[in-house]
Simulated scan of single mutants.
Amino acid sequence: MADTTNTSAPTLVAAQAAAPTLEVRNLQTHFFTRAGVVKAVNDVSFTIGRGKVLGLVGESGSGKTVTGFSIMKLIDPPGRIVGGSILFQGRDLATLSEEEMRTLRGNRIAMIFQDPMMTLNPVLRIDTQMIETVQAHEKVSDADARARARDALGMVGIPSPDERLKSYPHQFSGGMRQRVAIAIALLHRPDLIVADEPTTALDVTIQGQILAEVQKLCATTGTAMLWITHDLSVVAGLADDIAVMYAGRVVEYGDVGEVLDAPLHPYTHGLIGSVPSRNKRGVPLRQIPGMTPSLLNLPEGCSFRARCPRAAEDCIVMPTLHPWLPNRLARCHHPHLEEVESA
């Protein structure tokens, strides 16, 4: 009789090591309302490797925050994930129970919310919250947990961290509370961080400091990060890759430098063109005409065609996310290939 003992174990370990930290495949998250079905996330796919940062950008209502909440399995009724898979180190989060997700959240997967009070309890001191966060996943002494909490506060630029640990959230400014929330997310050096516009409320100096710490964390510990934002300048300096969302779908995906220098999709082109620094002084700002379509009643075919200067008859058919160039994808029938060739 053949010996099959442990023959699959090395293969399984090798497969997990080779797998990207996060791979989202054809994710669909819908909200079932009285007015109809809101397709907030509609066939979204992307991959984040170990130690890499993916910038997820788009205007308000594009579905980027719902994508982040879906990965964390924090979608409340009437919303739910209706399709696709969310592979974290090869393990499909979409199939896990709430108890199994709780062991991962805050430990191996962390989220930084746009509103820090979604992280902080207003009636507990900061040290209580941070120590409990450490001890919820690791058996360490109060002194060791406090030391880790103090170091995390110092990492995000909070002065006199020993003293500030004794404070309550209401004794901090909005920006300071956000820094505490970021520090809590960094406590366990997670394998994946989902950051939902975490530096919006911070001044430029502190924002730069936190971005530098985030880059250092990813480079030294291998943490993968999904950075959700509308700020292209932050993505340009932080991310390795970029995914641009519009009306619930990814419309462009690729290397951040290549996409920002020579965008393929007309929406990305318009988004970059509307940045004030891209416009000449004294010339009116360029802007994308029209309004984002309602997710309750999306138009047939390409969702951007009513606003697109390159729209044609074939845009009545929804384009696929096509690999027009090496490592460059765009959901468009008429991408700006001519500008890439001249760049």
Rank of each mutant, 00 (worst) to 15 (best):
D3S: 04
A14W: 06
A15N: 13
A15W: 06
E23R: 15
N26T: 13
T29L: 02
T33H: 02
V38I: 15
V41W: 02
D43F: 05
V44F: 05
F46W: 12
R50N: 09
G51I: 06
L54W: 09
G55W: 04
S60T: 14
G61D: 00
G63L: 01
K64N: 00
S70K: 06
K73P: 10
K73M: 14
L74A: 04
P77G: 00
P78F: 08
P78R: 13
G79S: 05
R80W: 08
S85F: 01
L87M: 14
Q89H: 14
Q89T: 12
D92I: 08
A94H: 02
E100T: 11
R105W: 01
N107Y: 06
N107I: 00
R108I: 03
R108M: 11
M111Q: 05
L124H: 15
E132V: 12
V134H: 01
A136S: 15
H137W: 06
V140C: 03
V140A: 10
A143W: 09
A147W: 05
G154R: 11
G154E: 12
G157D: 08
I158E: 07
P159G: 08
E163W: 14
R164Q: 13
K166W: 09
S167C: 13
Y168M: 09
P169R: 04
F172M: 07
S173A: 12
S173C: 10
G174V: 10
M176N: 07
R179C: 06
A183C: 06
I184V: 15
A185N: 13
A185T: 13
P190M: 11
L192Y: 05
L192T: 09
I193Y: 02
P198C: 11
A201N: 10
L202R: 12
D203H: 06
Q207V: 09
Q207E: 12
G208A: 03
Q209S: 11
I210P: 07
A212W: 07
A212Y: 11
E213C: 10
V214G: 04
Q215Y: 03
C218D: 01
G222I: 12
T223Y: 01
W227Y: 15
W227D: 00
I228P: 00
I228E: 00
D231F: 01
D231L: 03
L232S: 10
V235E: 00
V235C: 00
G237R: 14
G237Q: 14
L238D: 01
D241L: 06
I242N: 09
A243P: 08
Y246G: 03
A247F: 10
V250L: 06
E252T: 04
V256H: 01
E258M: 12
D261E: 13
D261C: 13
Y267F: 12
T268A: 10
H269R: 14
G270M: 07
I272H: 08
P276E: 05
R281E: 11
G282D: 02
V283L: 11
P284V: 02
P284F: 03
P289N: 08
P289W: 05
P289M: 07
G290S: 10
C302W: 03
C302M: 04
A306M: 15
C308Y: 08
C308F: 08
P309V: 09
P309R: 09
A312I: 08
I316G: 13
V317M: 10
P319K: 06
L321G: 08
H322L: 10
P323V: 04
L325E: 15
N327M: 14
N327E: 15
L337G: 11
L337E: 03
